[in-house]
Design a protein around this nucleic acid. Sequence first.
DNA 1: TAGGCCATCTGGTCCT
DNA 2: AGGACCAGATGGCCTA
Length: 194
Amino acid sequence: MRSLEMTAPWHEEEEDVEVEEMELRKHNDGRDDLTESSSDEATGRKRRKHGGSASSGSASSGTTIRRRKTCISARERNLRRLESNERERMRMHSLNDAFEQLREVIPHIKMERKLSKIETLTLAKNYIMALTNVICEMRGEEKHYTFVQDVESDSNAEIDTNTTEETSTREQNNNNMYQQNLESHPENTMVNSR
DNA sequence: TAGGCCATCTGGTCCT
DNA sequence: AGGACCAGATGGCCTA
């Protein structure tokens, strides 16, 4: 059970914190399974059953760092941590909502599974580049971007092995689709092909 | 079963 | 001071 390995900073300060931390965990798990699950079912979001890293945090949070003592109680700290967790969850949910909206406006070849985040960002970038090229062409200027090199470098930077091949192929298809669609029908630049 | 993707927790840092 | 942002860690789910 990872929660027993918890090394929260307040452990140094109060003896009863460990017990309270376990209570916090139980409370968290219960809440995930009950009150929050209903709203998550509505949005289809996955939820973790257990908490995150016990030894998480940056490497800079090593043993030499002395944390400032505060006068707030362990219970108060726990409460603030819970509130902070909740805010972070909401922040990530809003970020994911933004990704979802981005997926909806990016023309791409429809797949059984939805685009991953990295694919979404890469396609969005490529789409912007394709649109920029169209604008340049309409103005009689040189194209700003070429795709083949960029796709290769971007994919290799982020994804490897089989996924790279699959993603590169798919991105190339999408890029070709962008170019063909934009060149033959520049008036349809916002057509969503999903 | 390994690897990719993801959600969540967590503590540090930045910003208001 | 408190919230937002960020990155590391971890475990669950899914697919090849």
